[in-house]
């Protein structure tokens, strides 16, 4: 808890606290715009109204969040390396692994805030624009949880990369490359591609209905845990070059 507060204080003036709310607001504004401009076209698609609401808007929101994750992870770690603070931290009585974990936690909570904003927008649209009786709150909540979970492997992966690589441009480049390859493979059926964290994140957006895919859920949980443990272990070990 003490470490968590310290980590929060370190992020002052880095802009990290702006990135996720911006992604959230952008996503929400986008949802409103699309639904107001193209409401009739969207609702005449051959799917259930709830599926249309969730899957048609999910794509862009996911992309906003994804770039939010990439930038925020790079910012947080860049600030640690920039003035050589990481070096100073190594000579202080803190566990580098615990610091890493706090950083992961902060970014997860910020992502959660962004997702909350976006889902509030969906809730609003669902209440006002869907045909009478078509909106189901349970479905929205379940899908929101599913999308958030699917985003966690990318977050875990980006924090791992950005914490281990001093040059900010490398994780940034890997993030963009991950996004592009993820886009390319997001709609393949081959389960092996679920090993790619960016594919996992884009899966909910690529699906045609709002039913969570159990394979994606499992892949998300496993990958998040694996990257988190790897990062914890690597930062803890890097004390002793």
């Amino acid at each position: 808890m003490r470490l968590f507060v310290i980590e929060l204080r370190k992020e002052r003036r880095t802009g990290v606290f702006l990135v996720f709310p911006s992604a959230g607001v952008l996503g929400a504004v986008y949802a409103f715009l699309v639904f107001h401009l193209r409401k009739d076209t969207l609702l005449s698609l051959p799917s259930a109204p709830m599926d249309i609401l969730l899957t048609q808007l999910c794509g862009i929101m996911t992309v906003f969040n994804l770039f939010g994750i990439i930038t925020a992870a790079c910012m947080v770690c860049h600030m640690e390396f920039q003035g050589g603070a990481a070096k100073k931290m190594a000579a202080l009585p803190v566990s580098a692994g615990a610091v890493y974990f706090c950083r992961f936690l902060i970014l997860s909570m910020l992502l959660l805030a962004a997702a909350a904003l976006q889902n509030l927008a969906l809730l609003w649209i669902g209440r006002t624009d869907l045909p009478q009786g078509a909106f189901v709150l349970g479905t929205l909540l379940r899908f929101a949880g599913y999308v958030f979970l699917a985003a966690m492997p990318v977050l875990s992966f980006m924090v791992l990369l950005a914490s281990c690589l001093q040059n900010m441009w490398v994780p940034l480049g890997v993030g963009v490359a991950g996004f592009l390859t993820g886009m390319a493979f997001a709609d393949t059926e081959q389960p092996l591609f679920l090993l790619h964290p960016f594919v996992v994140m884009l899966k909910p957006a690529a699906a045609m209905n709002a039913k969570p895919d159990i394979a994606v859920v499992i892949a998300a949980i496993v990958e998040t845990a694996v990257f988190l443990c790897m990062g914890f272990w690597l930062t803890e070990k890097s004390h002793y070059e």
Partner: peptide, 16 residues
Amino acid sequence: PAFYANLTGRENLDIL
């Protein structure tokens, strides 16, 4: 010397 460039001198010491 190593420090956080985004923090003031006092904030840096406060972290330590």
